[in-house]
Simulated assay, not measured.
Amino acid sequence: MTDGIESGNADVPARAEDGVRLWTTRAGTGPPVVLCHGGPGLWDFLGDLAGALAARATVHRWDQRGCGRSQRVGPYSLARSVADLDTVRRHHGLDRTVLLGHSYGADLALRYALEHPGRVSGLVYVSGTGIDHRDTWRADYRRNLRAGLGPHLARWEELEARPERTGAEEREWCVLQCSADYAHREGALERARAATTPWFGVNAACNATLNAEVGREAGTPELRAACERLEVPVLILQGARDIRPHRMLDSLEAALPRVERTVFSGAGHLPWVEEPDAFRAVVGGFLART
């Protein structure tokens, strides 16, 4: 494994083969880890996670195509996203790396590992949506989301129903929705605001296109069979109080031949925020074994 601290270009944009600029940075010391943020259509909000791992690994972050500080240019597809992730890997001079993906980023990291297993030394799959069809869990998620919004539900529904939102309204809607991802309601809005600061705006076209493609792949025999062939070690992490149903990850765990799974009892969708010590210990142990 190449140690990322001695290779690549820190804080210099990577360029995909079609010329699109991808923001990326790195920090820390040790074996390389590349983070894949959630969304789709959001940007890297994993700076606190990178900081928690920086004593154990060289952590590489990036904004996906069309998001945040990367160039707002398509096309948007899973294949293009996998190719962009490979661009980031090569930009930093990494032969092999651990991938850590969160939410949609976990699904992107899984697709990359399925396509390029020889370039991945381990996969940390955090709060992803698994490989089952969305119809098996989507209704429960939406019900849990509304319950999690509590007193903010009416305002969220008002903003959700608007065919067009101003920039300020879009940010308010996003902050309200993200606040439901925290298990501990006290301070959830403040944490959601901090996670979306600085605010770069949601790329709605990216979100819709990639969500549709992930939805078409989910539940297919081909995806399950590919997971059954994957020999990369995988660590599945989830919060017990995530509003996404826990059963989403059961079939993924069953399909993978080399898998561990940890559930953080006091956490929601962002377990490194609500159980930082336990999260750091589990991920650190996995990195030591890969």
Rank of each mutant, 00 (worst) to 15 (best):
L230D: 04
Q238S: 09
E164S: 10
G4H: 11
G39S: 08
L85G: 01
E158L: 08
N144L: 11
T136I: 13
A50S: 05
R72V: 13
H246R: 14
H133Q: 06
R56W: 02
R138K: 13
G105Q: 04
G118N: 10
D135E: 11
A16D: 08
V232N: 10
T196V: 11
E222G: 08
A161F: 01
V12N: 09
T97D: 08
R241G: 01
R119S: 05
A14G: 10
L22Q: 09
L249K: 11
G148K: 07
E6R: 10
A188L: 09
V214C: 12
E228P: 11
E170Q: 15
P31K: 10
A278T: 04
R119L: 09
G284Y: 06
D63P: 03
P257F: 14
L210G: 03
I5K: 15
E172N: 12
L223S: 04
E17V: 10
V20T: 10
V73L: 12
T29Y: 07
Q71W: 13
A183I: 00
A194K: 15
A183K: 03
V234I: 07
L46V: 13
T136L: 12
R69L: 05
P163C: 09
S70N: 05
R146I: 00
E260I: 02
S103M: 03
L42V: 01
V263Q: 15
G66M: 15
M248E: 00
P276E: 00
R15I: 01
V263N: 15
A188H: 08
H60W: 12
E158R: 08
N211G: 10
L237S: 06
L149W: 06
L35V: 01
P13F: 13
R21M: 03
P32N: 01
G66H: 14
R280P: 02
V82Q: 04
H91M: 07
A208R: 14
T97F: 14
T262V: 08
S81M: 07
G47R: 01
N203V: 13
R89L: 05
T166F: 11
L35D: 00
D63G: 06
L249I: 07
L249H: 08
D18R: 13
G74F: 11
G187N: 09
G118E: 11
A204T: 14
D135K: 12
V124Q: 11
P257K: 13
C174W: 08
L123S: 00
V259H: 15
A240S: 06
L230P: 04
D48K: 13
R146H: 06
L189P: 01
L223E: 02
P151N: 12
A255M: 14
G128C: 08
L189T: 00
L94T: 00
C178K: 10
D63V: 01
C227F: 13
S265T: 03
S77L: 14
E17H: 14
A225M: 15
A208M: 04
R69P: 02
C227S: 10
R241N: 05
R89G: 00
G128R: 15
A54Q: 07
A194W: 11
D135Q: 14
G122I: 08
T2E: 02
H116R: 14
A218D: 02
S127P: 04
G268K: 15
W173T: 03
G47Q: 00
H133K: 12
E253V: 06
V82C: 02
E260D: 04
T2V: 02
E228S: 12
T97E: 09
V175Y: 09
R280Y: 07
Q64H: 05
A212K: 15
A57Y: 07
D140I: 09
R146D: 01
T209E: 05
D95E: 14
V126S: 07
R191A: 15
